[in-house]
Simulated assay, not measured.
Amino acid sequence: MKHTTVQVQNLKCGGCANTISTQLSKLEGISNVMVNNDTYEVSFDHSSDQEFEVAKTKLSDLGYPMIGEANSLPKKAKSFVSCAVGRMTK
């Protein structure tokens, strides 16, 4: 099991963190998801590079691309939706 920490864009609040934790935890092979709003970090355990890539894609699809990746207007908009959903499901 590998432990990975990545920094993501558009992470604003506990709602964002809740959405990220919930959605990544649903992925097969991903566990121990932790989100730190202060450092924009998401950390999780995974078994393979393929599982890491799936998690990275999921983060981007939710509107939280990794730092250094393209952060288009649609991604920023998705992050606001993800944030709102995360606040409602707390």
Rank of each mutant, 00 (worst) to 15 (best):
M1Y: 01
M1I: 02
K2Q: 14
H3A: 12
H3S: 13
T5P: 13
V6K: 03
V6C: 08
V8M: 12
V8P: 08
Q9S: 09
N10K: 06
L11M: 06
K12E: 07
K12T: 01
K12M: 08
C13P: 00
G14D: 02
G15V: 02
C16S: 12
A17Y: 00
A17W: 00
A17S: 04
T19L: 08
I20C: 05
I20Y: 06
S21A: 10
S21N: 11
T22V: 02
Q23P: 04
L24V: 11
S25Q: 11
S25C: 05
K26H: 10
L27N: 00
E28Q: 10
E28T: 11
G29S: 09
G29I: 08
S31M: 11
S31W: 10
N32L: 03
N32H: 10
V33P: 13
V35G: 02
V35P: 01
V35C: 03
N36C: 15
N36E: 15
N37K: 13
N37S: 12
N37I: 15
D38N: 13
T39N: 01
Y40T: 01
Y40R: 02
Y40H: 03
E41T: 10
F44S: 05
D45H: 05
D45G: 04
D45Y: 02
H46N: 15
H46E: 14
S48H: 09
Q50I: 12
E51F: 11
E53G: 11
E53P: 13
K58P: 12
K58H: 15
L59M: 12
L59Q: 06
S60H: 09
D61G: 09
D61C: 03
G63N: 04
G63S: 05
Y64N: 01
P65V: 10
P65M: 07
E69A: 08
E69K: 04
A70P: 03
A70I: 12
N71F: 03
N71K: 02
S72T: 04
K75M: 08
K76T: 14
K76H: 14
K76I: 14
K76N: 13
A77P: 02
A77S: 12
K78Q: 11
S79G: 06
S79E: 02
F80M: 06
V81D: 04
V81Q: 05
S82M: 00
A84K: 12
A84F: 11
V85M: 01
R87S: 07
T89H: 12
K90L: 01
K90D: 00
K90G: 02
